[in-house]
């Protein structure tokens, strides 16, 4: 067995420190070392997008990175958004539009959608399809997910508006 390596990362604004093997995948680190099991594993070869997290704000596949590569970086996972009692607007939109069925791909899907909606505040249906093209879903045929993203963009616009108006 290899020597353990010290990994210090910030996840959802919290600092974590663990000693892990250099070969440990980032997704296993997040799930099993930190206990943040909202990030799922679907293919372990970087295609399905289920393990998508935000790495310094950009969506990445956490099954294609080692935990050690995250040292000193900021990670955001699904647990860093809303809570059960107080959903984030994107989560609310997914609920209202029935954007999740089994829910396995959903956290990765939402983590892909978040930065997309920051860049593109009023996306077309085709732009949304392209934005989530790297996240596979077997339950929904994507249609309600696309509607959820449209709804989320409205909700975020309202939120921005109300911030602007100082409400």
């Amino acid at each position: 067995m290899s020597d353990l390596i010290n990994v210090k990362v910030t996840v959802n604004g919290m600092a974590y420190e663990r000693e892990v093997e250099p070969r440990m995948l980032l997704v296993d680190f997040i799930r099993h070392e930190l206990g943040l099991t909202g990030t799922h594993v679907g293919c372990e070869h970087g295609v399905c997008g289920t393990c998508t997290i935000l790495f310094d704000g950009s969506p990445v596949r956490s099954c294609l990175l080692f935990a050690v590569q995250a040292v000193g970086h900021e990670i955001r996972t699904i647990e860093g958004l809303g809570t059960i009692d107080h959903l984030h607007p994107v989560q609310e939109a997914f609920r209202e539009a029935h954007g999740a069925q089994c829910g396995f791909c959903t956290p990765g899907m939402i983590m892909s959608v978040l930065p997309f909606l920051e860049e593109n505040q009023d996306p077309t249906e085709q732009e949304i399809r392209e934005a989530i093209d790297g996240n596979l879903c077997r339950c929904t045929g994507y249609q309600h997910i696309i509607q959820a993203v449209e709804l989320a963009s409205d909700k975020l616009a309202e939120q921005r508006q109300s911030v602007k108006e100082g409400r």
Partner: peptide, 21 residues
């Protein structure tokens, strides 16, 4: 009607088998 199970699913709190420790 919106789904009862969604808040757990959408926040990453739904328990899947691989989440059992």
């Amino acid at each position: 009607i919106q789904r009862n199970e969604d808040p757990r699913i959408l926040t990453g709190q739904a328990l899947f088998v691989d989440d059992v420790e």
